[in-house]
C-alpha cells in the first residue's frame, strides 16, 4: 500500500538539516546515513551521500534525475555473483 498523500513524502529531517548546512556553507561534506527510506528532494542535488546497505556505506552522488527516488534504491543490499558451474570458458 502506498503512503497517504495527506502526509506528503517522507524526508528524514536530520538529512535536511545537514544538506542545508552543506548548501549554505558551500562545502561538499559527505553525509553518512542509515535513512534508506528517505526520499531525495531537489535540495539534495549535488551532494554526496554514504548510504548504508547493511554491510557498508555506498557513496552516491545525487543528480537531477534521481529526485523523487529513495536513497535506498541506490545502494543494493544483495550481491548476486552467478550460479556455480555457470562459468564461461
Amino acid at each position: 500500500m502506498s503512503r497517504s498523500i495527506k502526509k506528503g513524502p517522507y524526508i528524514n529531517y536530520k538529512l535536511i538539516k545537514k544538506v542545508k548546512l552543506n548548501n549554505t556553507l558551500k562545502i561538499k561534506k559527505k553525509i553518512k546515513t542509515w535513512a534508506r527510506n528517505s526520499i531525495i528532494t531537489p535540495e539534495f542535488v549535488g551532494n554526496t551521500f554514504l548510504v548504508h546497505n547493511g554491510n557498508r556505506f555506498i557513496s552516491i552522488y545525487i543528480t537531477e534525475n534521481m529526485v523523487g527516488c529513495k536513497l535506498g534504491e541506490f545502494s543494493p543490499t544483495r550481491i548476486f555473483k552467478g550460479h556455480s558451474g555457470n562459468k564461461k570458458k
Partner: peptide, 12 residues
C-alpha cells in the same frame, strides 16, 4: 534508459 542510467534498483 533513465532508470538504467541513474543506477537505481529498478534500473539494475
Amino acid at each position: 534508459k533513465r532508470l538504467k542510467d541513474i543506477g537505481c534498483y529498478r534500473g539494475i
